[in-house]
Design a protein around this nucleic acid. Structure first.
Lengths: 340, 340
DNA sequence: CTGAAAGCGCTTACAG
DNA sequence: CTGAAAGCGCTTACAG
């Protein structure tokens, strides 16, 4: 199939490429008659502008890049869902890359996206990203960048987050108000700000309610996995019999704990209350259903994209960009794993 | 930041753009001295070829399109995971679009990808796609197309699938061998080939083992959801007390059934055996854990991509393409929801 | 070993 | 209202 070009239409109609281009773009200075003739022929030939040529001329790709740690993940797949759906409606396509929690891969991917000349980049940092030079490069290149969920406070760009500290506080407070007196925390890795903040919220809640903080019942998940939840629950059960509440960094970890206690016959929430984080579907259907914090993935994707498109538009116009940080609300979802 | 171009390098070095281009592409007919000088300066200036120009010249975008029904889905997110990971390694970027099970959207997305001039398209059909003209268009445009999982037999292109009929047979046979005498099926929607084939496999197994087929215990899921599994389980429990086995079209539906029976105190697998389909993580951690059919999503993504890249290469060379259909193996995963 | 020239397909400032 | 011309940044066949 020879692709139809402006030139072909022009020749067939005996007019210039310029006029064809203008007619198709509905410029005012083309006679209605010519316009109609061009449009009809273009339709008949099923003309599609060559986007490579358009890109080169306009210096826009109408494509945005998205980097997330992993796509097989309840929260991120929801964010992705929102982003590609909304982007499509606005005329943008989305290239998705996974960092697999690797700083090195993340660096390469940024270079890739930059060399592809995406119009903007949306991303959530890998847990292991410490050096931020690759991201500063994006900013220096004047490519709009919006960070969501896993962000770095050191980066001068727009961000969309939840308040992890207050969410961690709420989760812990919910356990306390459910009657828990000794609350363990299965925390996330040491590096990411989100898991630090949830931990700080946990600590603050204990403090406010006069419960002693005890570092021996704070366990650190490296992988944030079902197995870690299971393993730490076992540790609690065998070495810390007095613990009567657990705040798990994610639902998956919480579900691991639930599975362990179900197995050994410890009654939830009677003997121990458990709350997770994220509100993924699974949490609502296990038995007992898991109380959790609702983390609005779809909203976060939507908002991030909106901010990015705004910045892309501003950059194009050469306007100064006002970076902003949007904090999305979270809420406690009470289910059967906590008695309240 | 003014972008660095070949022209700038050429001027700075006092040589021609042609030579710069050749040096950077390691052509043989450039003196080592010139080559070194060019490469050094290019590195120093952090030169990146303008991909828009390269695309226009080479008529390749090094980008492939991927359309799936939905991304928030265990099976598809695994396929996507494989595709973007492998594509990146091969120098291809992936644009992902969701059809949301809409034929109309799917059509639009094909046009979008075609107008973006992706080098090839990977896709899994929406359940509601009946007219295939948009896909024939892809083939006519000479853009390589590989269908996976949800395919149409009417399309002349490469395909990667599982044998749904034999997998459905295996699932049903597993229930029979576990001692079930009256087996219900919570089937998928009427249109997609996969759910038809699983149903046929179910029917065939009943036949082979001399169990009577009874259409009143075949329920059709429109949404393939947890709620449908729950609802149909309830129907079974109240109206078909003699049913002692259920083959659910997916794990999610199966888990809905498990949830219902747990709630009303029906013992699984003692009173009723249940098997799902797909082997998503959740199936392994609910209680009782759900027996299922392992559906190799990652493998399917990997294989589909491999086929597509092969066809892209062949098309570029103008070679004739041999379409092929790859059937990936599935296997029964025995867990605690079936007694065997 | 080097470079002038053509061309990929489009857009747009400018002249008439 | 129309079109010739320049140009986006690259690649490559061709000449020397």
């Amino acid at each position: 199939m020879g692709e139809v070009t402006l030139k072909q239409i022009a020749e067939e109609l005996g007019i210039s490429v310029t006029t064809v281009s203008k007619a198709l773009k509905n410029y005012a200075d083309v006679s209605p008659k010519t316009k109609t003739a061009v449009i009809n022929l273009a339709n008949k030939l099923n003309y599609q502008p060559n986007s490579f040529a358009v890109n080169l001329r306009t210096k826009e790709s109408k494509t945005i890049g998205l980097i997330i740690p992993e796509i097989v993940h309840h929260f991120f797949s929801n964010v992705v869902n929102a982003i590609i759906e909304k982007a499509e409606k606005k005329g943008y396509l989305v290239i998705i890359l996974q960092s697999n929690e690797s700083e090195e891969l993340e660096k390469k991917q940024i270079d890739l996206l930059l060399s592809k000349r995406v119009d903007g980049i949306l991303m959530s940092l890998s847990n292991n990203t410490k050096n931020l030079d690759h991201l500063k490069k994006v900013i220096e290149h004047n490519v709009p960048l919006v960070l969501f969920d896993k962000i770095s406070k050191l980066l001068d760009c727009s961000k969309v987050v939840i308040d992890d500290k207050s969410a961690g506080y709420d989760a812990t407070e919910h356990l306390i108000k459910s009657g828990c007196k000794k609350i363990a925390h299965f925390r996330g890795p040491l590096n990411p700000q989100g898991s630090i903040d949830r931990f700080l919220g946990y600590k603050k809640a204990l403090e406010d309610y006069n419960l002693k903080f005890d570092s021996s019942i704070v366990f650190t998940c490296e992988k944030v996995s079902f197995n870690e939840g299971y393993k730490f629950a076992k540790k609690i059960h065998t070495e810390h019999k007095d613990v009567d509440g657990i705040f798990a960094i994610t639902d998956l970890v919480g579900i691991g704990a639930v599975a362990y206690f179900n197995e050994v016959g410890v009654k939830i929430p009677k003997q121990i209350g458990i709350i997770g984080f994220s509100n993924w579907f699974m949490a609502s259907v296990i038995s007992p259903s898991l109380s959790t914090i609702d983390q609005p993935g779809f909203e976060m994707g939507k908002k991030s994209l909106k901010l990015l498109l705004k910045e892309i538009k501003a950059t194009k116009k050469g306007n100064q960009i006002q970076h902003q940080t949007v904090v999305l609300p979270t809420k406690v979802i009470k289910r059967n794993s906590t008695a309240f």
